[in-house]
Design a protein around this nucleic acid. Sequence first.
RNA 1: GCGGGUGUGGCGAAAUUGGUAGACGUAUCAGACUUAGGAUCUGACGCCGCGAGGCAUGGGGGUUCGAGUCCCUCCACCCGCACCA
Length: 955
Amino acid sequence: MEYNFREIEKKWQAQWNQTGAYTVTNDSDKPKFYVLDMFPYPSGAGLHVGHPLGYIASDIYSRYKRLKGFNVLHPMGYDSFGLPAEQYAIETGQHPAITTENNIRNFRSQLNKIGFCYDWSRELRTSDPPYYKWTQWIFLQLFDAWYDPTANKAKKIQELVSIFEQEGNKRFPRPSVIAFDAREWNAFDEKQQQDILMEYRLAYSAYGEVNWCEALGTVLANDEVINGLSERGGHPVVKKKMRQWYLRITAYADRLLQGLEQVEFSESLKEQQRNWIGRSQGAEIDFDIKGGGSLKVYTTRPDTIFGVDFMVLAPEHELVAAITTAEQKAAIDGYLDYVKSRSDRERMAEVKQITGCFTGAYALNPFDGREIPVWIAEYVLAGYGTGAIMAVPCGDQRDFNFARHFNIPVTNIIGSYYNGQEANPTKDAVLENSGFLDGMVMRDAINQVIEKLEEKGIGKRQINYRMRDAGYSRQRYWGEPFPIVWEDGIARVLNETELPLHLPHVDTYGPGPEGEGPLANIPEWTARHLETSTMPGYAGSSWYFLRYMDPHNKEEFCSRQASDYWGQVDLYIGGTEHAVGHLLYSRMWTKFLYDMGLIGHDEPYKKLVNQGMITGKSAVAKVVWITTPAPNNDGQPKETGYIIPFKAVPHEHADTVVETHLPVEKLSFDNNGNYYLTESDLQEIKSKYPQFEELEIAGPDSALLKGVQSASVNGQVELLTIEEKMSKRKLNTFTPDDIVDKYGADTFRMYEMFLGPIEQSKPWDTKGIEGVHRFLRKLWRLFFDEVKGKVWNDERAGEAELKVLHKTIRKVEEDTEKFSFNTAVSAFMVCVNELNELKCHKKEILEPLAVLLAAYAPHIAEELYHQVHAGEQDGNSVLDAAFPRFEEKWVTESSKEYPVSVNGKVRTTIPIALNSSAAEVETIALANETIQKWLEGRTPKKIIYVQGKMINIVV
RNA sequence: GCGGGUGUGGCGAAAUUGGUAGACGUAUCAGACUUAGGAUCUGACGCCGCGAGGCAUGGGGGUUCGAGUCCCUCCACCCGCACCA
């Protein structure tokens, strides 16, 4: 009877399905545990071996927790709305509803083969009306709320209306809203009132500058734009003024920041979020303009106010036209034309280039009245702070560069800290040339200045964030429709009974008129004046973890009872790519729902584990060695190599050779095994093969093939390979289906874990999988012999065997608990090797081992457990078994081999009884022959005995 | 530039947290059983040395009886952010 994994896996998967083995209920005496995967976009490309890595890890942990007696929620669903799905639909010419359905089916069948323990009865799709009904509903709650900064929480908008009716907005002013009192408020007409309220709502519509992507025909959120290009597809993105919906995530900036202290995310991920939020403390300061008017700037360093040598406005700043003098008008207009001509990409690419123009105006330093020239320059951004800065060249490098470039004299306020060659941003200097601040350390001066400014009424303490409110509308078809009707410019919400507002079926979904979405082409839609844009991809994913708790609830998005029972996601596994998108939005939504009293916790995830990427190995060139008889005058045969680059293809396709041949003799190797090419060869490769564009020049006349590794056969280079992200286009993918077909799901699961630490990215290497497969076969053979059949027996286990088992239980338990799945797999392998050596076929050992393995390789574990218990009534599924109990007594030894060292160098090992006293150990150690030899008659100064570890004799 | 991380055999990696570095797996080599093996099993496998032994965890220094692990200092690579005032 051999290990027939195909039959076994098919059998148990069917069994689990039929019995609903993994269905969980919301009531149980067991403690709860919630393990969640980031649900996937059902893209058409299908899975490659990199995708399931995180799913396998979470599955192992779920199964482990279940065996340890927890009620485990482990659901799966699909983020089926959004741009990728629509793009895919457009590419294939099919309706997104159809392609999504197909992709999900395909996806599900791929997942099923791997043997996951998801509770499929809770499966959800963000594009299902019963689901997006509640996405729309939560949007309406956001629309119907404002953020009270004094209470530091969201409240119903009606409360704000009451405040306005009684006292106007003096307690809650906003820069974009005029000040009004109660009488004025009550006198406003409805449109005016609604326009004002819009400025306070957490979901609001506003006319503003957005990231417009022409190729995708939609607006994108900041996190969907990378270096001026769209994250999806890499299309150019431009700034455009449009009416848009936004989420007031900035209201939650501080709480999003503080919340990071309570959650277990990796330091780098927390840092990414902090960076994105970009909190900075400083002051706003008003500078009078000579000849009238004033200018507000934001600075984090008010202590440097006496070092201000010029001011800079963003070119888009509203004051530019007003303050420019007649003499400078032509120059300023010219500069503004230049700025307009430059795309965001150019601006970002050429940050080192210093440009700017003097307006002719002067500002006055509020403390000493010094006249300060006012410039405009690209390096000041309109969207941050006040769009204007006070420039302190001795303390800020950018200001310094600007001053040097335009020959503006630099005032030194930090004495010897400034060397005249570069700026010094220190806070430790004692201030000079700084009026009333002279002699004060900068760090302490910051508060002094702010107090003084506030006293004089020309400035105030101010905290700024880099994060902007999140764009919440997309001019696309495949998303949640907004439950909003526009009536004479007023946004009216749909009644709750009208939800879900169904996404209408359309046959074509090209853009609507004037930059509107496809919904604008539907007569019934526009007749009702319904909002024509749809919600962004992150809408549905911002709360899905709550819906899993109560997936079929028709009355509520999730009952309070269910959300209180399951609470936070205890373990969330997914990639880092959502660091500043989904992971921030879902945290905000959770905080909002908490504020509204709809759930009882305000951070969605307790612990987050980011699985690393599995990279593919692509061969980029082949080297061929040819021996020519006697090419030279000396008559010696010569071996010449040719490097043959080809398009990035995997090993299997390595024959797809392209014609360029470059002699390998031009290659030289450095100590690190990198290859060098001459410059001209490199240029030749680069011009022919775009994938080499990233190659770097390593020396004056040679170029290092960066990232190239050798595949060496008998010392001879055959293929040059690089590691890169797996993608279908590069033909370097492996699908889980193929691996599962060949080796089985259990082997696949264990091998993915065995590859290395879960959080690290690592290359896929198909060869190594044999080792894991071999392990499972060895395990099987402990139970069954190919010829003899059953070989396990009921003999009593001996101490050596019990020791092996319990050592393994402890190791696997510890490793699983700390997500060190690779070492846990190793522990299993060691265990089987040792049992083999002991020729142990005893049920007493093998049965617990099968249970132990059930988290990692559930199918074979089920089968073996079942076999061992065959003939018994009930209780023959590993799912009903308890996790084997570790017993210390089997691994503690009566004596142990101790390494004995003299002066730190280990010379021998001697057995020491565990209950020996230090004095006894000393005597035994000194009496040892080998040690006496190394002591050479010297008397020991000190004997160090580390119990359980080692003995060291110092002479 | 700022921040986070990594550096150990041919390769993926371990190391009970300061205690015999390289577990486990691959690759390679040798052997056994075989008509054969891409099945199974055994052995070798960091470097130098015939050997005893010596040297080895990116480089250099330090603390310690003892350092991959702690401290200082360079170096290399990866990831994120980047004119944010």
